[in-house]
Design a protein around this nucleic acid. Sequence first.
DNA 1: GGCTGCGAGACTCG
DNA 2: TCACGAGTCTCGCAGCC
Length: 621
Amino acid sequence: MNRTFVTTLDDFKTWVEPLIASGQFTKVAFDTESQDGLNWDLARLVGISFCNGVEACYFDLSNLDLTPDVIDYLRYVFGSIKKLVAQNFPYDLKTLICSGIIKDVIDTTITRSIFDTMTALHLVDENGSSGLKEAALKYKLAQPGDIKKWSDVKDYGHSSQKFYDYAITDSIWTWQLHEILGVRLKQLGLLDLFFKIEMPFQFVLTELEMSGLTLDLQRLGDIHNHLQELRLNYEVEMLECLGREHTIQKTLFGDPIYISPVNFRSSPQLIKVIGGLGLDIPLNKDGKLSVGKKTLLKLSGKHKFIDTLMLYKTATKLLNGFVDKLPNHCCRDLRIHPSFNNTGTVTGRLSCSNPNMQQLPKNKKSVGANIRECFVATPGKKLVVADYSGQELRGLTEVTKDPGLIHDFDKGKDIHFTTANSVMKLGVPEEALYDSHPDYESYKNKFKVERDKIKNGVVFPIVYGTTAMGVSATLNISETKAQSYIDGFFKLYPKVKDAIQKTIDELKTKHYVRNLAGRYRRFPDFSNRAVRQAFNFKIQGYSADMIRLAAIKVLALKSTYPEWCLKMNLIVHDEIVCEVNEQYASETAKAIKECMETAVKLCIPLVADVAFAGDYHNAKP
DNA sequence: GGCTGCGAGACTCG
DNA sequence: TCACGAGTCTCGCAGCC
């Protein structure tokens, strides 16, 4: 491989022009180098490396003003490339957009024909690393001694030969990996999943990270004050229960600081304190004393201390985990830009971090705090939230093709209610189990408790491959009774049991299973746990690919309706959050619903619920 | 004595 | 309650200077 290093636009032109002219620059691996700022959009582009399999070049931009001339030329270069190869393409795309070389995620001067090696690595081995350096070793592109870490070269600066070598190597490895992985994907029958779902979805990932979501610091501040006062009150109450009190210190400015003699965040200390109240702490499944939610629920009502502790824990979690942490993630545009990781889970779901917007607390009525209300649309805009109705149950139906499930979804029969009615012998007339029947709502209200128990305690856990033991623990009933509930479900929907058995057979003979999108999950060893994971993967993993297809369609709305000024903010497993000009909110909601419901064709209807409002909580359907 | 890294436990979500 | 899939926080211990 010929390696060239250039520091001026003219030298870069000298290198790249003949390649473009001769057609040898149509398929190119590239990698951008940027210097991270505190804020996501302050990252400065310091260089780009290119590799077409024969030639490699690193263009050092760290000492160059990114004048319109330079930007325009680089835009022309990227516009000339017919196939872009990259390791973690969404990140490079973001860098190019932030530096002005590419306009936005729907910029049509840039090819949509891309190959992301990180995603390819994950598809061919979801249990292994999808990192470039690990892959270079695994596929024997490099020896352990060849691997340089960023920390090895950063002291030499962006214009050192050591840094050049480091940077150019990344694009060379990326090129070599894409050649190897292209063959592997074909051998494994993964080309459709890769090119029809994963690659178009790369643009969605960039859109998500660039859009972010506005955080209302004022509202969050109010919640902070409220929860802090509440937490102090709870602490005082708990200490009263124990016959103890705070020591009070004063700050330089005379404000009191309350110091508790007990750290209520410490499990060992709580075990001592609760034991001292004469309450028996049950052992957990590992045979250890535990003061988690399960224990506290069992002890609740037996002592005022326990009830206050539960509220204290909720308030503390919200304060320490969210209210006081979220502002640290706020960028100068007052928005939070989380990272979405396409290769972060073994099932194909997305993971999210810094912060994890997928674990944002729902409305906590017990302590009167609603953090989701702090995520707001900017003035003149609305948040549109759409989520799949019963996505996993519909996935279960598609996977099992159970005639009962198909019939019930087709005819609008309530599956949870049907199951509850059957196993608990509620005596609801058969026709009233259909949502179109005039008596449906009144029966549903009458047996709300029973229906919820079966929904959360039996039907849902079956998707996780639960056992009678699990159901009995959840619903606090005997194992015999629990088994009868499970049997009752299988009697109504017998193909579900067949599908689980089929999964067991697949696992034993092939050591892997695939979902309906072709995605693999491999299991080196057979176990009951592996059976649960494999069966759940078929449903959860398919849901993940379904939301990908839906999001690709939603992204296309950006170019179809530019006047909407649509931004896609979040994907939370079965939910898509967008921000849009107020006057188009209703129209957008309809369009997004349509995108989601037509993302895949199932044997039953696919339904999405949608709503819009000024904040995330109130826009929940 | 104080700092850092790490695992365990707890809690958040779908 | 916690079976399936995640990320983050705090505590408390071990190891180091």
